[in-house]
Every structure is written in structure tokens, then in C-alpha cells.
Simulated scan of single mutants.
Amino acid sequence: MVNATALITGASSGFGEALARRFANEGWRLVLVARRFGRLQRLQEELGGPAKVHIIELDVRDRAAVVAKLGERPAPFLDVSLLVNNAGLALGLEPAWQADPDDWDTMVDTNIKGLLYVTRAILPGMVKRNRGHVVNLGSIAGSWPHPGAHVYGASKAFVQQFSRNLRADLIGTRIRVTNIEPGLCETEFSFVHFKGDRAKAEELYRGNDPLVPEDIAEIINWVVKMPSQVNINSIEVMPITQTWGALPVKPVRAPSGGKP
């Protein structure tokens, strides 16, 4: 059984919730971070109570709150050996010229800036102890573009490159960095992506045998359990029903007012 502390953002549902259960079964102490405090309270009660699970209501977009609340962890939860930057989202399906800039701000503030704020808050302790592992949740959208994923995909490309550069910064330490890049996975992600259109979200998964959060939790558990000299840089994972698309070819309409 593990005698160490893991901090998981976005822990109230999806990957984060599955990770909390998986790591609790392995004996980890947990710091669970999310905006939906009621869900965190239920997880805390289920997974061993305050002695095993410390919960923090937090919006990772708020830098001052990240610094303050993560700095107030009780003593048993101070030495974080594993940070899982899981909080993130996609909003909207429109092409870039029709997208809502407020959605862009939310994705950038959560997927990029929130990840940075939490990492900056936790990493100094890891460096001081010369021990730790940062696992970032990226996406296949960070490598493979598709219509409507303009800012979301760009934000996950940032996570991919930040993870690589973080590894470069940490050379000479015993701290590991891994970027996990899932494909189609059945979580609340699509419900949020489609802005509450449950029928559209369910249609995406129907008959497609998607990944489930427990798959990702199992992969991350394997990554973390590798011998300490092994760093898994990245893992891209899709369901068997998903693959890369052919390069699209489509006739171009003439501009308004005549031929180009």
C-alpha cells in the first residue's frame, strides 16, 4: 500500500473522480480539488473521511485562491508526491468566426492558466524534496485537429508542450512528468462541450464503445507505479472504434462578389 499524498484537480466527476477511487484503493492520502463541494464531500465520506481525504472547493482559474487554499492544507497533506492536473473543459462547437469569445476565455483560463497556477503552487515542494510526479491530462485534440476544436485543441497542445518543457526544467531531479492524451471517453465532458444538450452528448457515445474514466485511472496508476528511474513522457489512447481521419477534401465556394 502507498503511503503518500496525491492532489487531483477536477476531482468531482469523470477522470478525477475515477482517479480518486483508484488511488484511495491503493492507500494514497488524497487532496481533492473541484468547484462542486457537495460532490467532494460525498467522495470524502466514501473514501475514508477527513483523515484520508482533504477536500478543497476551488476554481483553478483564480490564481489568488489557488495560492491561498492550496497553501492552507493541513500537515498530513502538505507533502504532495503526485499532482494530477485534470481540471479542464471544452465549450462550443461553432467554427472560429462564430465562436463565443467568452468560451475561449473560459477554456484558456481553465485548461492553460489553471494548470499553470496549480503546478506552480505544488512544484516547489517536490523540488525541495527531490521527489514527485506531475501528470497532466491532455487530449488527442492537442495533436490531431478537427472542426470546432480551435481553442480547445490549442489549449491541449499547450499542455503537451508545457509537459515537455517541464521535463526539461526538471532534468537532474527525481521528479517525473507525464502527459496523458485520451480520445473519446464517456464522461460529463461532452455534456459540458455541447452546453447541456444531453441528447447530442449521448448520441456521440451511442454504439461507439468509448473509453470510460476507469480506463484512464488504470493507465495513470500504471504510469505512477513504474520504477522511479522510468519516466513515461506521454500516452495517447483511443477506443478501438476511433482512429485518425483521412485528410478532408472539399470544394471551396467562391467569395461573395465574384471569382477570386
Rank of each mutant, 00 (worst) to 15 (best):
L166A: 12
W244N: 09
L170H: 05
R253G: 12
N208W: 09
T241G: 03
L116Y: 09
L70C: 12
E57I: 09
K195P: 10
H193Y: 15
Q98T: 14
V237Q: 06
A199K: 13
S12R: 09
P239E: 09
I240H: 09
G172W: 05
W144E: 14
V66N: 04
K52D: 08
L116V: 06
F191H: 15
G207V: 00
I171H: 15
L58Y: 12
L19K: 05
I55V: 15
A154W: 05
I219R: 02
V53A: 03
R129E: 01
I220M: 00
G142R: 02
G71N: 09
S139G: 03
Y205A: 06
R29G: 03
K200N: 05
A75P: 09
N179A: 10
G138P: 04
V223F: 08
Y152D: 06
L40S: 04
A11L: 08
G148I: 07
P213Y: 04
V237N: 08
F37I: 08
V84I: 09
V151W: 01
L47G: 03
T110V: 03
L83I: 07
V177H: 05
V108A: 06
L47K: 02
N179T: 12
E45T: 10
F194S: 13
L19M: 14
G132D: 04
E46K: 10
I232M: 14
S234G: 12
R120F: 01
W104I: 03
N85E: 05
H146Q: 12
G38Q: 07
D105S: 06
I220V: 04
R253D: 11
T187G: 11
E45L: 12
P248W: 08
D103F: 14
P251K: 07
F191V: 14
V223N: 03
I220E: 00
D169L: 14
D169F: 07
R73L: 14
L170I: 04
F194A: 11
W104R: 01
R131W: 13
A6W: 03
G48E: 05
E26Y: 10
S139V: 00
V135H: 05
G257D: 02
P239K: 05
E46L: 12
G257V: 02
G38Y: 10
S12D: 06
N3A: 11
L47D: 01
A24D: 06
E57H: 13
L70G: 03
M238A: 07
W97S: 10
G258Y: 03
E26M: 13
K200F: 04
Y117F: 11
H146R: 14
W28Q: 07
P76W: 02
N130W: 04
I235Q: 02
K259I: 05
Q41G: 09
D215Y: 00
I140L: 14
E181M: 15
H150C: 10
V84Q: 04
P95F: 04
N85M: 06
V33H: 02
N165K: 12
V249S: 13
G125I: 02
G27N: 07
G258T: 03
F189T: 00
S81D: 07
K225T: 11
I216M: 02
P145K: 05
R131G: 08
F77N: 05
R29L: 11
G38W: 07
I220T: 01
L58N: 11
P74L: 05
L247Q: 13
